[in-house]
Design a protein around this nucleic acid. Sequence first.
DNA 1: GTGATATATTTGTATGTACAAACAATAAAT
DNA 2: ATTTATTGTTTGTACATACAAATATATCAC
Lengths: 147, 147
Amino acid sequence: MKDINEKFQNECQLNTCLFFTSSKLSRVMKKEADDLFRITGLSPSHAFVLYLVNLRGRVHQKDVGDYLLLSPSTMTRFIDKLVIKGFVRKETEGKNVYLTITELGKELQPKIMESWNTLNALLNGTLDESEKLTYLRLTHKILEKMN
Amino acid sequence: MKDINEKFQNECQLNTCLFFTSSKLSRVMKKEADDLFRITGLSPSHAFVLYLVNLRGRVHQKDVGDYLLLSPSTMTRFIDKLVIKGFVRKETEGKNVYLTITELGKELQPKIMESWNTLNALLNGTLDESEKLTYLRLTHKILEKMN
DNA sequence: GTGATATATTTGTATGTACAAACAATAAAT
DNA sequence: ATTTATTGTTTGTACATACAAATATATCAC
């Protein structure tokens, strides 16, 4: 492992690139997250959507997308899947779509929280508490500055 | 924008989740990066592979994948595209594949660097220098700890 | 040297995600 | 009130990426 890094390290600019570093991290985390959320039958992103719907009971589809920064078309696809699986109900009012949680959706929450807690424990273990807060603060700052 | 956040903020745990926050950031950066790298005719990831091949002149395909943390199958697909576009040559030696840069590949480097510099300027502008270093250090620490 | 194990690559397939265009509904302008 | 612009959603399509299985090569044990 170390060897491989040394082959390129200090000789290329990738590891000082915010985009490259962030993408790499996200890919690695995704693999772990996919694994841990498998017991829910959903991908982490789908699970987060469901989590938000459950949290609010009834919510405008657009708001969920805006908050998660997922594109409208992605939201449509996600919701379709959640509806097919019976976790969410969609109520169309004019051009707007509102989402409500179903019994089945509610019942899935514990599994989502279990997966999520395990993931958090694993990831939080890589930094100490103050580092974690710093990391989060900086990440949110970048996000804000990019609009 | 602020409104949307407030609708969920402090009422859900997503923004204190390292995975969620990192994924969100990566998605947002990706959009910007895709945009800026468009002039190269390559996605940022493809461009980074090409950048590494050019840097070393001749390199083992596996080493590139290990460094970028891209799966073997993804590497195959990436290289195939770079070969088809004429930027890279692949030389098979037994089970190993070595990559060399072509003239066309060399000629593309300036455009890659231009896109990349613009992207870096944009992203670096969101943090001040010391914050950026901290962010990079923490990100690399998480990556290391996750193996 | 033959068989077993490990390593590098490829192929088939699946998934998350986005963009562009289409569509539907609302609001604004005249 | 009809036209125009804006907003929310969907559909078609494309791409990056991964996993599992297949393949091919190399290495190790005996």
